[in-house]
């Protein structure tokens, strides 16, 4: 019986720095049975750990900061037209490599032994089992239309074109309006009724 796989039990935690691995009591074999029950090999656990870290990374604030910095830098280039400018493609490529290198750097910080090449190979061998929100999120990063939409949304927000419903139910006294504007807010002016 294998007794040399205590790592299996410990590599499951996300992000926490566990430090020294505790001495295990190998005399009773509960943990082996557990492994058999879940059908997880040490490779599975390692893979799941990496995915768990990726999930954490993209939800954390530094990631959002980087993303916002990128949007801020480029949103002015984007226009809400059907036709796309060639520069969008370059900007999208820059975005993809920014995200990729950030993920890699962060993963190496959290898992010093992390190797992107190895992880990429694992991904490819698990092709059929990649399900879940994190994969959808990662796929969105490389989807051009989703990227364009994200920039246009950001731009609309920046330029105040987004529909603001927050003031929708505010009651403004008519009297104040009258004093400020010198005209009743209920007056329909001729301008808007005139045809071309």
């Amino acid at each position: 019986m294998e007794t040399n796989n205590s790592n299996n039990m410990h590599s499951n935690g996300h992000g926490s720095n566990e430090g020294e691995i505790e001495e295990m009591d190998f005399s009773h074999s509960d943990f082996i049975e557990e492994d058999l029950a879940t059908g997880l090999s040490s490779k599975d656990v390692k893979f799941d750990t990496i995915i768990g870290h990726i999930e954490d990374i993209v939800m954390e604030e530094p990631f959002q900061t980087i993303q916002n910095g990128f949007l801020e830098k480029y949103y002015k280039e984007f226009e809400d037209t059907e036709e796309n400018k060639f520069c969008y493609t370059d900007i999208h490529k820059e975005y993809i490599s920014l995200i990729e290198s950030y993920l890699e750097t962060e993963l190496k910080k959290r898992l010093p032994e992390f190797c992107m090449l190895e992880f990429s190979q694992q991904l490819q061998s698990r092709k059929k089992e990649l399900e879940g929100e994190i994969f959808e999120i990662l796929l969105t990063f490389s989807d051009f239309m989703a990227f364009k939409e994200m920039l246009l949304d950001y731009k609309a927000e920046k330029e105040g074109n987004a529909i603001d419903l927050s003031g929708g139910l505010t009651v403004t006294p008519v009297q104040d309006k009258l004093n400020l504007d010198g005209a009743s807010p209920f007056c329909i002016t001729g301008k808007s009724l005139q045809g071309p």
């Binding site: 993809i96 992107m116 991904l123 490819q124 990662l138 796929l139 990063f141 490389s142 989807d143």
Partner: peptide, 11 residues
């Protein structure tokens, strides 16, 4: 090839 490109191709 980067991670995201690989994923895209696979999925």
């Amino acid at each position: 090839m980067g991670l995201l490109t690989i994923l895209k191709k696979m999925k």
